[in-house]
């Protein structure tokens, strides 16, 4: 396990020193500041607009970066042959895969924390009263990031093309927000929509992670079960994706 953490720490450091990443973080800061303007334009719904826009933007940025990082990361290391230098050390392919995945997820979590910090400062400056549900919303984003990165990692190795991994993960991410609607359609369509019913089982159920909806409820009375269920679901989904990715990389000729 030690090598997994060594690789994860190295990925984290590489990511944060990457110029493109630094520019993306700067862009995120500017966009979050821009949300203050949107809030003002929303007049009596200022805080709501600021809260919703900010959280959506944080989620979108983190997911885009996670999917891009996972879809291109391992493939870039294969292309530049830097993976040879790692795998020629006493590092197993499983350790490599987990290390790179964990590093990416940690990078994204650090980015989410940074963006959320800036967002919170803006919210508090505009008179918002802090609620613990905000942290839960961030937790939901973190779970989505972990699932999206695992899906992209698998498809990058499966298709060996970053573009197709990006496209497929993007499609799954979109579909994952419409599971309820897809279930409704499948239930009404009977046998003719059997493939859709099968697809529903495979698409990640991302609606489970939308904890930020709780911020719309005045006082959160929701129980803890959905959080536990979502956490267990994310862990299982990520494990399956990474197990499949490992099956691909285990016997791969480099």
């Amino acid at each position: 396990m030690e090598r997994v953490f060594i690789l994860a720490a190295s990925s984290l450091r590489e990511q944060w020193r990457d110029r493109a990443w630094q520019v993306a973080m700067l862009f995120a800061g500017v966009m979050l500041y821009f949300s203050v303007l949107l809030g003002i334009l929303a007049a009596d719904q200022e805080l709501r607009a600021l809260l919703d826009f900010g959280l959506s933007f944080i989620e979108l940025m983190a997911l885009a970066a996670a999917i891009f990082g996972a879809a291109t990361g391992v493939l870039r290391e294969m292309e530049t042959k830097s993976i040879y230098l790692i795998l020629s050390r006493p590092v197993s392919r499983l350790e490599y895969l987990l290390g790179r995945y964990l590093g990416l997820v940690l990078s994204m979590l650090a980015a989410v924390s940074l963006m959320a910090g800036a967002h919170l400062i803006l919210l508090l400056l505009r008179g918002w009263s802090f609620r613990a549900d905000y942290l839960l919303a961030l937790y939901g984003i973190a779970l989505k990031v972990a699932v999206a990165a695992a899906v992209a990692t698998f498809f990058a190795l499966f298709s060996t093309s970053a573009l197709s991994a990006l496209v497929i993960t993007g499609i799954l991410w979109t579909l994952g927000h419409f599971i309820a609607e897809m279930r409704f359609l499948a239930a009404r369509g009977g046998l003719s929509l059997l493939p859709l019913a099968a697809l529903i089982q495979l698409v990640p159920h991302l609606q489970l992670f939308n904890f930020r909806d709780r911020l719309d409820i005045p006082a959160s009375a929701a129980a803890g079960e959905p959080v536990l269920l979502a956490t267990a679901y994310a862990a299982l989904y990520c494990t399956c994706c990474l197990a499949l990715a490992y099956a691909l990389i285990r016997r791969k000729d480099f």
Binding site: E14, R17, R19, T80, K81, S82, Y84, L85
Partner: peptide, 11 residues
């Protein structure tokens, strides 16, 4: 192992 034209993280 030294591969041909090794690549390292530039940062």
């Amino acid at each position: 192992y030294l591969p041909e034209l090794p690549y390292f993280q530039p940062y």
